[in-house]
Simulated assay, not measured.
Amino acid sequence: MRVMFTALVLLLAGIGTAAAQSAPIKVATLTDGLEHPWSMAVMPDGHLLVSERPGRLQIIDARTGQKRAVAGMPKVRAESEAGALGLALDPDFAGNGRLYLCYSTGWTLSAGNRLSAFTLQDFSLRDEQVLLDDLPGAKWHNGCRVRVSPDGFLYASLGDATAAGGAQDVAYLGGKIFRLNRDGSIPADNPFPNSPVWSFGHRNPQGLAFRPGDGALWSTEHGPDTQDEVNRIVKGGNYGWPLCRGTDPCPGLADYQPAKAEFDHANTIAISDLIFYQGDAFPDWRGDILFVALKTGRLYRLDLDGDRITGHQILIDDDFGRLRDIAEGADGSLYLATDNGEDQILHLTPR
């Protein structure tokens, strides 16, 4: 593997005054030859399952970086930001092989998105069960991150599919975060009767993560040209788009939830996926948010005091181009997926 050592320096924005510290890491290329990897899931054996936006799934050996394609992928609409997108493993994946995949359907004039469950068996997807179909789709703003909550519900985000005004309409499924039972049925305690919608007023939420301990849901969301957001997602919350954005106040908008932080008020970083770090490899980061960005090619670490973000550290600063996804391995090491067209999976360990 090609190895690169990166000395890291704390850089703070106007959201806190945490003391500066160094945070050295070792960055190695686990594998390359990928094309727009979008989502990674760490399998029970430690290997990575990776979706590639053009419509592929790969299993990557975490020891050698060897790739093996998964057969049985459905037909995917791959154009611009559409394609094979978010994926998540069922909590019982080791026994049932069940996984969840969000992918784009149709073609430009009849674009859509779909959330389905599959069984992975013998390096092949089988037995597709469509959970949500005919979701709004477009060339841009498709989302779609997928996560299973600690209490066993399936969550997925969806962008506004370039129909910004629809994000405020609960009946329109673009610009939403969904909550489902894992069989695709709608939980009885969802905030809107007979609806998968959990929160609304989103532009293009591309990251979902549950905080250890209290299970609170957090999300990252693309702003249009400024004010990319880090949000804490609450039941029935309205996140403002297109009427309000970032940390701006929004008087008179019912259930409005301003962002916990924005990056930043004058620019966009094209924020992507996030995790709450839980491992032992970087013990000083335990409980912190880590997220990646596309435009700036950065890996960020956020300091938290409850729900308040008090400062941030830039751990990687455009050393590898666009960064799409982040995942934590069983040993606490980290994996990053680049999104440059000729792409790689990076492996981060303590220096």
Score class of each variant (00 low, 15 high):
V3Y: 06
F5P: 11
V9D: 12
L10Y: 11
L11A: 11
A19H: 09
A20F: 12
P24L: 06
K26Q: 15
E35P: 00
E35W: 01
M40N: 11
M43F: 05
H47W: 02
Q58Y: 12
A62R: 14
G65N: 00
G65D: 08
A69W: 06
K75E: 12
G86L: 01
L89Y: 14
L89W: 15
D92P: 05
G97S: 03
L99E: 06
Y103T: 00
N113K: 11
A117R: 14
Q121R: 14
L131Q: 03
D133H: 05
D134V: 03
R145K: 15
P150H: 11
L158R: 07
K176A: 08
F178Q: 00
D183Y: 12
P187G: 00
S199L: 12
P205T: 15
F210A: 11
G213W: 01
L217W: 07
T220L: 04
G223T: 10
P224A: 11
E229N: 09
N231Q: 09
I233L: 15
V234M: 02
G246E: 13
G252K: 08
L253Q: 05
A254T: 11
A259S: 15
T268A: 15
I269H: 07
D284K: 05
I289R: 01
V292R: 07
G306A: 14
D307W: 02
R308E: 12
L315H: 02
F320P: 00
D331W: 11
Y335T: 01
N340T: 05
R351E: 15
